[in-house]
Write a protein that binds this DNA or RNA. Structure first.
Length: 938
RNA sequence: AGGCAAUUAGCUCAGUGGUAGAGCAUCACCUUGACACGGUGGGGGUCAGCAGUUCAACUCUGCUAUUGCCUACCA
């Protein structure tokens, strides 16, 4: 079988996903083990109007890595996918479309027609994001796909609303709220952004005091609101104004008289120490107004235009036009004291960036006290949910909860869950699960439903359990029992408050369970200059472009590698390096497949005991008296597994790579348990590239590529193919497409390699058993020996490079070493000669070579020399040796100083001291040899 | 204003109380029968600064500087 010379991701990406989905591999039902442990993740539902951005790609990758990993380990795995109806965004999008296509507004066509139109839009375009999720390779269960406005989820929403209302937690009232004059809806505090404006102004207005020549000056950034002033407040301790408290002001531009009041809210140090109070258009003033029972004068309408209360001169003006006019009039009246430049912070609508107008409005609110306490208790008592990284998120989350205020849950939109409250003609309110129930309660059919819908986050808050079948009426389903609480939530910092905390609160309240055990908060992907990506800056990275350019798997690897919880700047080169890695895997496999006649995947090539235990299982009790630790064990139970059997007969390189493979598997599992994606990626990358490709393939290359079929060659071929097979499994959660593509091509793969839970499923690597790693196969002896061989080869290569020995020139290598080291070198002579490009190894106890030789010292004291008769550049060799001596002496000096320090020797742990002593001895020995070599050159 | 975090090689980032790491970039050599999306060998860092704790600090503590994030805003 021959593969293309380079990996082309497109083919793999277009075929395998379809097969997996068609075979229902993503659904938990694929797992046939009734006792399997469950693992579940719910996706943070992306907006139905949305398309994939790089932040999604990051969080989706992490979730899919965890899901695929757990699935391969035999867990009954559910990765639940769904989409959010995204009230404001969607309504805006369809409104725009309506205007463009028919020049109509939603009001023109009416509520019913409009919402119908949104549904049509949703059905037609709502799958953009879900198709992109397929492109990413996410192993989500499409049979359980949810939408926040599905009937079942909507039922849950109504149920929760009614229950909270009945408990008095939900109430309706006129409060000062964040109003977006553009979207014409209220927003919660969390949907308001602060934008700093450097060129703001602070206006100083003079208000005449009644029956006096005195004036009192107030400072304001919003002069137009003075038309709605109902008091001026000062601090009662402020000597300047003490006498004025209780007096009356003739409010300019109006015919109103307003009092001067004292309130602790006023900071005497700031501005003039006197504050105009506009209860209907400022949240702080609103509070002051309540304390002093001041009238709330509303001077603006829902578009932030001045209304009749602002007076005839101003009515109909936009708030900014009104501001100019007010300032003009004050100037005319000689009451404008001064205008200062002033940096102000403006609250804007998160979505449309319009400046928020605080105004009085009748809205629905949710008291958070009880649910807040449930969440805080959970953190106090169980430390749940557990945040990764814990610092600083746990504290941020807890502090926010502690200061939580009522949640404004109504929105003046048509797209969303309409509030289940009805009013009769007398204005009585009936909150009920259905209109029928409301009618029954009201005793009349003549009811009007509340026009508002609920904040989109209200339904999102129920996501962990509403998606699993909870409707309030139904509170127990098989899915809830199996998958709730979910295991881990993966999400961004920005929605810890908007979503994470609210899910915790509602899940505790309505299911009595936490929604998830762990929360992974990933970092933000910044642009290449370290700036936040934004539409206005147009500096976004489109993941689809990245997929096209480098492949999905390379992108996933890059993202997982970057996932440390910290923000990071985007770097194309990083993806490129993982594209190269994908190609490396492709080509390593390609090479093995080119030499795979007579080979097949068989784990017993990596662990003869595995085969032995299989045999024990099949042959049963008759073997029970045999000891598995017995060296002759295999020979006794099966003749063909006798001592010269190639499965048992492992070279140093074999033992070493098997050891490294098992270390890798153990470490990858350990890292993923801790959600340490970066570490897992690094471990896999370096195992495959450095250990496997750079060393193992090169070490066994001659044997593998032999033209002569024989048992040993075929065993070597099977062994390397099996190592690849194991590596592909380890890589699969990160690189699903490439690994499936290659795995399917390996000789001898079948569903027999699946985890026991999936034996009957069609063969796929995604159901293969994830390697746990076997600590008993970690071979420290082989590791040490292999390190020596590697060091030898590297030192020779160093000499070759530094002394400009041409690749075609093959010198002899003289080695002086102890008996043990000599044996290691002899055993691996063929590989050493090949990789060091040498003709022969001359081993002895002491070195005896011509003066014209390049030399080096190995760990443990072995010396090597390469005779360079006629080729040597003595100057260069001298420099080379001096360079090495210098490096050693720097380290040696430091160690010597440390060991000369009495308190170190006394107080440091004995082992530490011993390690340093041994290292120093090693350095001294090597230095001595190198110095002798240097002398010999003279 | 308060809180939190970051500051490590040219760049982007890992990392640990006991000899500084990766990828990319860079230099030299190599068209060696998987891969030039490759191979081999180099070079490059007083781990922001100052003080302290410790036998030992890049790692712990404090302060300073710079940067970023979050929360709350004084009109």
């Amino acid at each position: 079988m021959e593969l293309e010379k380079a990996y082309n991701p497109t083919a793999a990406e277009t075929t395998h996903y379809k097969t997996w989905e068609a075979n229902n591999c993503f659904a938990p039902e694929i797992n046939e083990n009734p006792d399997a442990e469950a693992f579940s993740i719910v996706i943070p539902p992306p907006n139905v109007t949305g398309s994939l951005h790089i932040g999604h790609a990051l969080q989706h990758t992490l979730m899919d890595v965890l899901t695929r990993w757990k699935r391969m380990r035999g867990y009954r795995t559910l990765f639940l996918v769904g989409v959010d109806h995204a009230g404001i965004s969607t309504q805006l999008m369809v409104t725009r479309q309506l205007k463009k296509e028919e020049h109509k507004t939603p009001r023109d066509i009416g509520r019913e027609a409009f919402t119908q139109r949104v549904w049509t839009w949703k059905n037609k375009f709502g799958s953009t994001i879900t198709n992109q999720i397929r492109r990413e390779g996410l192993s989500v269960d499409w049979t359980r796909e949810r939408f926040t406005m599905d009937e079942s989820l909507s039922k849950a929403v109504r149920e929760v609303f009614v229950r909270l209302y009945d408990e008095g937690k939900i109430y309706r009232g006129k409060r000062i709220v964040n109003w977006c004059p553009n979207d014409k809806t209220v927003l919660s505090d969390l949907e308001v952004q602060d934008v700093s404006k450097k060129d703001g102004k602070l206006f100083y207005l003079q208000y005449p005091v009644k029956d006096s020549d005195e004036k009192i000056t107030v400072a304001t950034t919003r002069p137009e609101t003075m038309l709605g002033d109902s008091a001026v407040a000062v601090n009662s301790e402020d000597e300047r104004y003490k006498d004025l408290i209780g007096k009356t002001i003739l409010l300019p531009l109006t015919d109103r008289e307003i009092p001067i009041i004292a309130d602790e809210y006023v900071d005497a140090e700031f501005g003039t120490g006197a504050v105009k109070i506009t209860p209907a258009h400022d949240p702080n003033d609103y509070e002051v107004g309540l304390r002093h029972d001041l009238p709330q004068i509303e001077i603006m309408d829902a578009s932030a235009k001045m209304n009749e209360n602002a007076g005839a001169d101003f009515q109909g003006l936009d708030r900014y036009a009104a501001r100019e006019k007010v300032v003009e009039k004050f100037e005319e009246l000689g009451l404008l004291e001064k205008v200062d430049d002033y940096e102000i912070v403006l609250p804007v609508c998160e979505r449309c960036k319009t400046v928020i107008e605080p105004l009085l409005s009748e809205q629905w609110f949710l008291k958070m006290d009880e649910m807040r306490d449930l969440a805080l208790d959970l953190m106090r008592e169980e430390g749940a949910p557990h945040f990764f990284p814990q610092v600083p998120h746990e504290k941020v989350y807890t502090t926010w909860l502690e200061n939580l205020r009522d949640w404004t849950i109504s929105r003046q939109l048509w797209w969303g869950h309409q509030i289940p409250a009805w009013y009769d003609e007398a204005g009585n309110t009936f909150v009920a699960r259905t209109k029928e129930a409301a009618v029954k309660e009201a005793g009349t059919e003549n009811l009007t439903q509340d026009a508002d819908v609920l904040d989109t986050w209200f339904s999102s808050a129920l996501w962990s359990f509403s998606t699993l079948g909870w409707t309030g009426e139904t509170t127990e389903t098989e899915d809830l029992k199996t998958f709730h609480p979910t295991d881990v939530l993966v999400t961004g910092r920005d929605i810890i408050f908007l979503w994470v905390s609210r899910m915790v609160m509602t899940a505790l309240k309505f299911t009595g369970e936490k929604p998830f055990n762990d929360v992974i908060i990933h970092g933000t992907v910044l642009d290449k200059n370290g700036q936040r990506m934004s539409k206005t800056k147009n500096n976004g990275i489109d993941p689809l472009d990245v997929f096209d350019k480098y492949g999905v798997d390379a992108t996933r690897m890059m993202l997982a590698d970057s996932a440390t919880g910290v923000d990071f700047a985007w770097r194309d080169e990083k993806v490129e390096s993982f594209r190269n890695f994908a190609n490396k895997i492709w080509n390593a496999t390609r090479f093995c497949l080119l030499n795979s006649d007579g080979a097949q995947v068989d784990y017993s090539y990596l662990n003869p005991k595995a085969e032995a235990s299989e045999i024990v299982k099949t042959l049963g009790a008759e073997l029970s008296e045999l000891d598995e630790e017995d060296e002759e064990f295999l020979d006794k139970i099966k003749p063909e597994l006798a001592k010269d059997n190639p499965k048992e007969n492992l070279s140093l390189a074999d033992k070493w790579i098997i050891s490294q493979l098992n270390k890798t598997a153990l470490n990858v599992n350990k890292s993923l348990e801790k959600y340490d994606f970066h570490d897992a990626v690094q471990t896999l990358y370096h195992f495959f590239w450095d250990d496997f490709c750079d060393w193992y393939i090169e070490l066994v290359k001659d044997e593998i590529t032999s033209d002569v079929p024989n048992v040993a060659r075929d065993a070597a071929r099977s062994r390397i193919i099996t190592i690849i097979e194991q590596s592909l499994r380890l890589l699969h959660p990160f690189m699903p497409f490439l690994t499936e593509e290659l795995w399917q091509k390996l000789p001898g793969v079948s569903s027999d390699l699946h985890n026991a839970a999936y034996r009957n499923a069609p063969q796929t690597i995604m159901l293969a058993d994830f390697p746990n790693g076997d600590a008993s196969l970690i071979d420290d002896d082989a590791t040490r020996q292999m390190q020596l061989v590697i060091e030898l080869i590297s030192k020779v290569r160093n000499i070759r490079a530094e002394m400009n020995i041409k690749p075609g020139d093959k010198p002899a290598i003289h080695i002086a070493a102890n008996v043990d080291a000599q044996k290691i070198f002899t055993d691996n002579q063929a590989q050493i000669l090949k990789l060091a490009r040498a003709t022969e190894l001359k081993l002895s106890e002491t070195l005896s070579v011509p003066k014209a030789s390049a030399k080096a010292v190995l760990t443990g004291g072995a010396e090597i020399a390469i005779p360079l008769e006629g080729l040597i550049d003595f100057q260069k060799e001298t420099e080379r040796l001096e360079n090495q001596i210098n490096k050693l002496s720097t380290e040696g000096e430091r160690l010597q100083n440390q060991l000369a320090n009495q308190s170190f020797v006394e107080k440091a742990p004995v082992e530490k001291v011993e390690i340093l002593r041994a290292r120093l001895a090693e350095i001294e020995m090597q230095t001595k040899t190198l110095k002798q070599n240097l002398e010999a050159l003279k």
